[in-house]
Design a protein around this nucleic acid. Sequence first.
DNA 1: ATTTGTAGTGAACAAATGATTACTGTTATG
DNA 2: CATAACAGTAATCATTTGTTCACTACAAAT
Lengths: 220, 220
Amino acid sequence: MITVMKTQLTGRQEEILIFIKQFREENGYPPTLREIGKKFGISSTFGVKRHLDALVKKGYLNIESNASRGISFSKDENITSTNIFNLEKELGFQKIPVVGRVAAGTPILAEENIEGSVILDSSFIKRSEDSFALKVKGDSMINVGIYEGDLVIVSSKRDIHNSDTVVAMLNDEATVKTYENKNGKIKLIPQNEKYKPIEIAGTDDFKLIGKVIGVVRWLN
Amino acid sequence: MITVMKTQLTGRQEEILIFIKQFREENGYPPTLREIGKKFGISSTFGVKRHLDALVKKGYLNIESNASRGISFSKDENITSTNIFNLEKELGFQKIPVVGRVAAGTPILAEENIEGSVILDSSFIKRSEDSFALKVKGDSMINVGIYEGDLVIVSSKRDIHNSDTVVAMLNDEATVKTYENKNGKIKLIPQNEKYKPIEIAGTDDFKLIGKVIGVVRWLN
DNA sequence: ATTTGTAGTGAACAAATGATTACTGTTATG
DNA sequence: CATAACAGTAATCATTTGTTCACTACAAAT
């Protein structure tokens, strides 16, 4: 089976393709040649048709011959990132990355640290919060119900205050602790008697990543 | 704001509505009057139009006057239960009901006990598990990291063994506890020293609802 | 300089499509 | 029995819509 080879769209073609998508989302049916022409200031239906023919040839569209509004998208355009964004808003969820082990010297959200993603209800997080999930290692926070294997949901955008649970990078390790800042002296406080509070020294490689805003635990 | 009152569809109207949905999913654009007529053996476009007019009047459709294929669904029909099911499978999430306070004498999933819904990643739960979320009240389970205000995710389909965390109805109240059954003697064991284990007497109104398979906590 | 591709024009025409009119038959309801 | 609602018919007409033709201009590649 020979598949149509996708090739690069011209700027005009891309504009028209986006318009057709938006038109259909807003109206529930695709536009006509004349409606496209009206939008782009193209007075000739043949000019519009040439663009559509190119989009068909390049594999982005299907056109039903002689059918009014006979424009549809090729199969592999059905769920695009734009659609997913719209669906996330409409259905009320967010898909966020899950950070597992953090490689030394890498930003926490580096590609190599991402071991998957998780879908959460929008009531937990907003898209603008730049959230991610971090898989918990260790038992330093069990007194506040955060256990090894849990996912903590982290927002990079929330203000952090004393007693908040935070995620921080400390000497190339991601850690979850209770945050304390008194007179500029920062402590990361475990919530397990087995461990002592950590005072951040000036020489420590320390960075606050974000505030823990949720916990998800899966019991097996 | 006055909303159009939905009224009951006739059998024919419902068939036509379903056909329009399916046609649009398959083709990427809605059908014409003649295409609908062809499907249902209605030779007159006026006969078809009468049905569509009724669907508009009843709030299911919008029709753009004089536009070919000018049929679209009303806003609240854009995401139907069928679409959501397909999207859930495709995008990988489940929407489950959230039970708040349980009214005395009602099944736990009675309409009046449902105070919302929550979206969870499919890796947590499967559709076939009949899951729901229960908002936790009380502090009887803090030793296993289940706090007041948490959502516990409950599956009705999992086998329950000793030491599992379960949701049960006990004397008209929903309760989360650790389950123990020794020689037919059932105990519900809190995980907080403040409370004593509960032995289920034969006269107790007791019912196992399901097994806790996850915990979701939102930190405010 | 030539060729190819891109981006159009204006007009004409054919086909598709929606709207309307006047009508019939059946079923349910008061 | 009368009325209303439902479910159609056939024909006609107006409008919408897609296709085609012969053309122009410009940019990029050869």
